[in-house]
Amino acid sequence: MARLMTNLYDVSKCTACRGCLNACKDSNQLPAVIEPFKGNYDTHGGDTNGNTFTVMRFNEHDDPVDGVRWNFLKYQCMHCIDPECMKVCPKGAYTKLEWGATFHDEEKCIGCQYCTYACPFGIPKYRKHTDTVTKCTLCYERVGEGLTPACTRTCPTGALTFGFRDELLAVAEAKAKFLRANGFPRATVYGKVELGSGTNKIYVLTDTPDKFGLPVDPKVSANTWVWQDWVQPYAGWLIPIALAGSAISFVTTRMLASKGGNHTEGGHE
């Protein structure tokens, strides 16, 4: 297996300028999704959509000791090492590229949206006009040409870097250690061990993941196991069951989501 390549996102350097969002739309030629302002700088409601692969969350916290913290978080596909989307896809549209990106082939996608329910981060989104699901590609074409992802290329502060995962993990650990010693005692690295095998996006956080609207312990839906072990091998002749599975998955995911609270809502909302 090739050496994994990944994005490191250091929130302590992020100014939430959202140049990455623009670069993403430019590179992927995605149309603007203009929604009215509702009271949070995050005009996407904290969530990706079919034409927006990456968003910026703005979380406000008022701590008696630290005072007001405005936590920014770039949120997009985490490119899990062992991705759930890939397990549930009936058409094999998802594959792992050998350098680490979770690749979604829109040609193969039938728009069934199982992946949108299976994803522990709620990332893939259905896009009506193409009848497919979309998500961050980790700019695999740019990376294939020896370039860095568009978001990384445009980041003016160096909050986003791209390189070998093992090297960036070491950088991330050192940065978190530095932050812990310099006014951010709860600073941590996210993406190293989450979901067991980790993700192929590494975050350096200045506080605990919940303060950024990230799942503290991302969980895989129980249905995914059922699907992967029982349904998928017989997918060719079990389409009706698959549809039922979809319904179950839908209901259970929603239940899980409501149980865990709506973590995508930021700050004062």
Binding site: R18, N22, K25, D26, P31, A32, I34, E35, F37, G39
Partner: peptide
Amino acid sequence: LPWLAELMPNMFVEISE
């Protein structure tokens, strides 16, 4: 520019809680 309008679409004012 649509991509920038998307990020800050309307006039708003900020006030304390």
